[in-house]
Structures are given as C-alpha cells and as structure tokens.
Simulated assay, not measured.
Amino acid sequence: MTPVELSRTVLHAVRRAVDEGELRAVVPERVVVAPPRPGGCGDYATNVALRLARPAGRPAWQVAEILRSRLMRDGRIADVVVTGPGFLNISLRSAAPGALVEEILRRGLRYGHGGSQAGRLVRLYAPHEVRAVVHLDVLARVLRSQGADVRADCAAAPESAWDTVLGVSGIGVAAPGSDGTPDGDPGRVAVRPVPAPADPLPLGRDAARWALLHPAPHDRPRIGPAHLVQREGNPLFRVRYAHARTRALLRNAADLGFAPEPGPVTGAGVQPLLQALGDHPRVLAAAAAHRAPDRLARHLVAVADAVTPLLPVVLPLGEEKPSAAHRARLALADAAGTVLAGGLSLLGIDAPDRL
C-alpha cells in the first residue's frame, strides 16, 4: 500500500464513521500520513483523530480508537497503535513478492512517489555554499516526489560552475533578513548542512553529488579521489554497478529468449532484498519529512548490497532451460535495478546501463 492509498483508506474510515453516526464531524478533504516521529511506531502515522476531536466533541484518543477499529478491518494493515494524545500509528502488511515486483515494474522510476506532502507549499532556503545548494536541489526533488509544491531559493545566484558541473538549476535568489532567517521569514526551511571542506567539482557531477549527499547533513563530508575508485569499498560504485548488472541480465536473458515475469522467489538473501524494495516508499517519505537526502543515499546502498547475492543465480547455467523460477528471479532483479535507477535520479546522479 502506497502512502496515497493509505491516506485514502484512513479518509474512507473517517467517512464511514461519520456516515454511520459514530462520529459527528465534517469529513476533511484529505488525511496526511507520514513516517512516525520520535515516540511513534509502525510505518506511518496520522494526527487525523486530533483534528476531529474538537468538532466531534470527544477526546482525541476516543476518536482514534473508533478509527483504529475500522482500519483493522483492512487486510493490508497489520496493526494500528494509538500513541500520545491520539496519534494513529499504522503498520502495513508486507506485499506478496510477486505483487511487490509487479507494482515496482508498473510504476517504474516513479515507484515510491506518493502524496505524504501533498497540498503543502514548502519554501526552502540555502546559503551560498556548494553543499547546501546541492542539498537544496535534491530536497526539492524528493519533496516534489511526495506531492509538495516547492520553492527553492539561495542567498545568492549559484555559481555557473555548480550548474554546469553539478547540474544545479531552477534555484531562485532570496537574501537573508537581518535577523538571520531567510528574508526574515521563519516560514522558510533553512537548508544548512556542514559545508564541504574542499571544492568537490574536480570529482565530476556524480561523484561530487554523492560525496555531498551520502553523509548526514550534520556530518563533515569527505572530498577526495576515493569517490572515483571503481571498487566495492566505494558505495557509489556498488550502487551503480548493481544497477548495471541488472540491466546486463535483462540483455542476456533476451538473448536466451526469455523475459522477466513476476512470481514466487525463494533462496538465501531474497527476503532482505524484498524488505529493502518494500521499504523504498517509506524511505522517500521519511527523506522528505525529515529533509534528509542521506536517508535515500544509504537506502540505495542497502538495496545494492541486498540484490548482489541474487545476481549469479538469475540466468540458467550450462544446458539448463529457462524456467518460471528464472523468470521470477529476473523480474526481481529488474525491480531492484528500477529502484536503484529511480533513487539515483532523485539524487541527480546518472544510472548507466553499462559500467
């Protein structure tokens, strides 16, 4: 279940409770679901019960319990826990492997895009510093993937080399106010990661972006040739190599006369990969909610590491004929490659089919 589908499910539960007289309130136009904040649990949380409590004339926890009982009737929901004054914390059931792979291949590079930020205008502001501007660019991409309307401004026009080399574009200019907030407007979200200790441009677009985005915003990034090394010790190489391997498998399978077909997949290491792929929508929603592009970068490394053990067993060996198992494994590898390509695209990094 995607965040958009879950939002609709919660809204439907509210509407049914109102229609059947359990709640007396105006049904909201939409319900926002987002990754739970500290103290919460599950996959997503919503404050809809708190919003309905006053018009319903009931404590928020009572409204939450009414909605909880209705949500638990949905077979796609594993559990609903009420926390704090009335937050609904929702855990989803894992999709069947074939269904998950089908969804990923159907949605393509947009798998994981959702509506957790739908209807929100987010105004981002960054100082005139290369790492801050790259974070600004990526946060705008991630927030838009979750339905937000984003305005991204910088303290001064980004250097032309940042656009030419790093692909930073579409950023406005807004000088900071005298009180230190952007334009003196506390409604703007300041993007201020620890500055880069050296010029990242000599690394080129992909390596430079990764060097600036992979560490958490509060960590000092390392700028150096290690990001260009084509070895397993380089996380960016592992991500791009895993993607290229999945594309090579598709080409080789076509030469053998078979194509991917979602279905049951068994074997060591399959479950961690399915878990990583199923987590992708939640990771994107969390990266948007917490303004943390590093969450997406680290997730891509986890997906790459999880798919690597699968790759050697996708194609038939020797005189072996392609079977349903081979087609299902190929579809799973294809889905992993799709997630890697989509995630790299949001980071502004190329995902080549060949390395």
Rank of each mutant, 00 (worst) to 15 (best):
V313S: 14
R295Y: 09
D305V: 02
A328T: 05
V314K: 09
V307R: 09
H299S: 12
A324S: 15
A297Y: 01
K321N: 12
S323V: 03
L311A: 14
L300M: 11
L332H: 11
L332A: 05
A297Q: 06
A324T: 06
P322R: 11
L296Y: 10
D294G: 07
A302N: 12
A328M: 04
L296E: 11
H326I: 00
L317Y: 13
A324K: 13
A304P: 04
D305S: 13
V301F: 14
A333T: 01
P316C: 02
V314H: 12
P293T: 01
A302F: 08
R295F: 03
L300E: 12
V314L: 06
L300D: 13
A331W: 02
L310K: 03
V307G: 04
E320A: 15
V301E: 15
A302S: 15
A331Q: 09
V314Y: 09
V313G: 08
P322S: 12
A304N: 10
V314S: 11
L317D: 14
L332E: 06
A333L: 07
V307A: 08
L296H: 13
R298I: 00
H299I: 01
L310G: 09
A297D: 10
V307M: 03
K321F: 05
P316I: 01
G318V: 04
P322H: 07
A331R: 06
V307N: 07
A331Y: 05
T308L: 11
R298K: 15
A325H: 06
A325L: 01
E320L: 10
L310R: 05
E320I: 02
V314A: 08
E319V: 01
A306K: 07
G318R: 04
R329H: 10
L330G: 04
L311E: 14
